[in-house]
Amino acid sequence: MKPALFEYVAPRSVEEALDALAGDEMARPLAGGQSLIPTMNFRIAAPSTLVDLRRIGALEARAVEGDVIRVGAMTRQRDLERDEAVRRANPLIAEVLGNVAHIVIRNRGTVGGSIAHADAAAELPCMLVATGGSVVARSTGGERTIAAEELFLFHMTTALEPGELLTEVRIPALPPRTGYAFQEVARRHGDYALAGVCALVTLRDGVCSAVRLAACGIASKPTRLAAAETALLGAPPEGEALADAAEAARECVTAGDDRQAGLDYRSDLVAALVRRTVAKAAGRVEGRA
């Protein structure tokens, strides 16, 4: 299990990295390597050139600016998880990260790497969709911002163009009067989710004034549970509305039967997880008894 030959460059600036990527469609950026290197060791992936981003200090910057958390793509997942300012701004992030693989993997795995990898069962892309975050992509032609729901196209496929580099992840801070929760079911601790649901519930006078729900593991990409959100809007996060939301979430399940879970099972999982995460999120709304 040794990787095939490749060329290696470790540029010191984003511009140099973009130049290296621009000339070669088979070149790949190397971030933390926790997803890419296994596929190379299996020789499933055999990039011509690895453009190692580790020397580009600008990609490690992170800051809470008003209601946006800006996370440099090369930020290690474990660093984000333990960042107190980020935790204060949006505690959902740490809760989600606690489910991403294992500490030793998060020590090296990067936030940008996981999002660009875009595994349909991965937690971080699901969180980004749920929070309505976005990414900044740069190429030699310029820079653009891509909203999370436009970024993820298919399992391990994003809207990033060849030669485009994900440089920053932008995660909204937790809005006022909003509770959060993430829960997943995985075969083993740290495994990719059979199904996972991320919930953000904003309450006004005991009813849901805003709801954002997204799921991983249930379709070919992280998925907004729009119908479930609609079922809760204007209603208290419990009882019939919650039951309706759970039922509505089922229609988003499209992942076919695989070796770990059938469609029926995933459908039941997403319904149960919607009930549980919404209830938990609602219970966490500040000031709510």
């Binding site: 190397l30 190692d52 474990r78």
Partner: peptide, 29 residues
């Protein structure tokens, strides 16, 4: 395992435990 699951190859890289099978030696420059 050489795919980052078993943890046998864990070393400490710049103050953080990491899988040495999921890094190239050049990355440790």
């Amino acid at each position: 395992c050489e795919h980052g699951v078993c943890g046998c190859c864990t070393v400490i890289i710049d103050g953080h435990a990491g899988r040495s099978c999921l890094a190239f030696a050049v990355q440790a420059d």
